[in-house]
Computed example of a mutant assay.
Amino acid sequence: MNFLKELQKQRKKLKETETIVTNVDGKRFVESKNDVKTISSNMYGFVVDTKPDNVPIMVTEHLYIGSQDCTNESVLINNNIKHVLSLGIYVPVPIDQKFVDCLDLPETDIKPVLRECLPYINVAIDSKENVLVHCNAGVSRTSMVAIAYLMQYKNMSYDDAYELVKDKRPAIQPNDGFKKQLRGIKPSELI
């Protein structure tokens, strides 16, 4: 018996299944062998976060990280934050701010991003002024930059810097491309 006939024979033994597919626009479909049915179109294709995440976390003295919710004026005042580094999402704030375009994609080259971000953070910290680093959710881009700062200026290994930031803000998770690039760079040689 040839391989194709063996596959066809085995295929007949398979149980028919249905797969639920959710598109980015929130439309949901049930796909089966012979049919595709729309089951819902009033959901989002991502998890909707309805709780504010407006508590900036101090990673080291003067370095805070968080989501875009932390850019609220009262949050900045209450934490004596004088500088804001916005990664990939611009939120106007009434204090010194730097916006750096950065997509949260594994293929994003982080070196140009770090060349813009790390000196800005370091100037604020050297001046003993609090700086907030944020992206949309404060999970991937924010953590990548905070880890890079620790590697560059505190001469920490990737693993040690990651553990410190993760200990302070458990929600962090740099994407796989960011992790790979950071691991491939020697501490203090990022910029």
Results as ranks from 00 to 15, higher is better:
residue 111 K to V: 14
residue 148 A to C: 09
residue 184 G to Y: 06
residue 14 L to V: 14
residue 61 E to T: 13
residue 185 I to Y: 11
residue 90 Y to N: 13
residue 142 T to S: 10
residue 134 H to C: 05
residue 90 Y to I: 13
residue 91 V to W: 00
residue 176 D to W: 06
residue 133 V to H: 04
residue 109 D to A: 10
residue 17 T to M: 09
residue 62 H to A: 00
residue 185 I to G: 07
residue 121 I to R: 04
residue 140 S to G: 08
residue 102 C to W: 00
residue 51 K to E: 12
residue 1 M to N: 09
residue 103 L to K: 12
residue 63 L to D: 05
residue 91 V to Y: 01
residue 19 T to G: 01
residue 9 K to F: 14
residue 123 V to E: 14
residue 24 V to I: 14
residue 114 L to C: 10
residue 1 M to G: 14
residue 29 F to T: 03
residue 75 V to Y: 03
residue 140 S to P: 06
residue 190 L to E: 03
residue 65 I to E: 01
residue 67 S to G: 07
residue 63 L to T: 08
residue 156 M to P: 07
residue 13 K to V: 09
residue 58 M to Y: 00
residue 24 V to W: 10
residue 30 V to C: 13
residue 161 A to H: 03
residue 141 R to K: 13
residue 41 S to Y: 09
residue 173 Q to A: 12
residue 123 V to A: 09
residue 36 V to S: 12
residue 55 V to D: 00
residue 72 N to S: 07
residue 7 L to H: 10
residue 175 N to G: 06
residue 58 M to H: 03
residue 22 T to F: 03
residue 98 K to H: 08
residue 179 K to Y: 00
residue 146 A to S: 13
residue 1 M to H: 10
residue 73 E to Y: 07
residue 143 S to E: 07
residue 171 A to H: 06
residue 98 K to R: 15
residue 70 C to I: 04
residue 106 P to T: 01
residue 79 N to H: 15
residue 68 Q to Y: 12
residue 72 N to D: 15
residue 25 D to G: 01
residue 72 N to K: 11
residue 107 E to Y: 12
residue 117 C to F: 08
residue 76 L to A: 04
residue 90 Y to A: 10
residue 60 T to D: 12
residue 36 V to A: 04
residue 48 V to H: 05
residue 24 V to Q: 13
residue 101 D to R: 11
residue 158 Y to S: 05
residue 145 V to G: 01
residue 6 E to N: 11
residue 88 G to C: 05
residue 31 E to S: 10
